[in-house]
Computed example of a mutant assay.
Amino acid sequence: MVFFKDVDGNWHVGALASLLDLVGAITTFSYANCVSTVADFNASYYSTEHVEIESRVMADKGKLIHVVVQVRKKGNGEVIAVGNLWMASNNLTIAQMSNL
């Protein structure tokens, strides 16, 4: 049994939300080299089929970083989900977090 798929074999929306959140956090870490927490998360779903993912930093406001994650249908590039995340930086690195 695959838990991220629904009965039709498409992505479960909860799994897709988790993916948007994770990719947003990874994008912020890659950009700012610090651990961050989601301050605001908004997801829009258009479909839940086989996917490709693109993530970009759209704005840097110091402690707040805005990330947009787009999930596209594999093959034709049709957007099937968009995550808008405002990430709040705590300026800790992974090494510092592991010492807490």
Rank of each mutant, 00 (worst) to 15 (best):
M1Y: 08
M1D: 11
V2C: 14
F3H: 13
F3N: 14
F4S: 15
F4I: 11
K5Q: 13
K5V: 06
D6V: 07
D8C: 12
V13K: 13
V13W: 14
A15P: 08
A15L: 07
S18Q: 07
D21E: 10
D21R: 01
L22F: 06
V23K: 11
V23E: 14
V23I: 11
V23N: 11
V23C: 03
A25G: 14
A25I: 10
I26Q: 07
T27Q: 05
T28V: 07
F29R: 12
S30F: 08
S30R: 13
Y31A: 00
A32M: 08
A32W: 03
S36T: 13
T37K: 05
A39I: 10
D40F: 04
D40C: 05
F41V: 03
A43K: 02
A43T: 04
S44Q: 02
S44I: 03
S44A: 05
S44H: 00
Y45G: 01
Y45A: 03
Y46N: 02
Y46C: 01
S47E: 00
T48H: 00
E49H: 00
E49S: 02
H50A: 15
H50T: 10
H50C: 09
V51P: 03
E52R: 11
I53P: 09
E54F: 06
E54Y: 02
S55D: 14
R56C: 06
M58T: 14
A59H: 06
D60A: 06
K61Y: 15
K61R: 08
K61M: 08
G62N: 04
G62C: 10
L64W: 05
V67I: 10
V67C: 01
V67L: 04
V68Q: 02
V68A: 01
V69I: 07
V69T: 09
Q70Y: 09
Q70C: 07
Q70G: 08
V71W: 11
R72C: 01
K73F: 09
K74W: 07
K74H: 10
G75A: 13
G75F: 06
G77H: 14
G77W: 13
V79Y: 02
A81C: 10
A81V: 07
G83P: 09
G83H: 06
N84F: 11
N84E: 05
N84A: 04
L85C: 04
S89T: 10
N90Y: 05
N90K: 10
N91Y: 02
T93G: 12
T93F: 09
I94H: 02
I94D: 08
A95D: 10
A95H: 13
A95V: 04
A95W: 11
Q96P: 09
Q96H: 15
Q96K: 05
N99L: 14
N99C: 11
N99W: 15
N99I: 10
N99Y: 13
L100M: 09
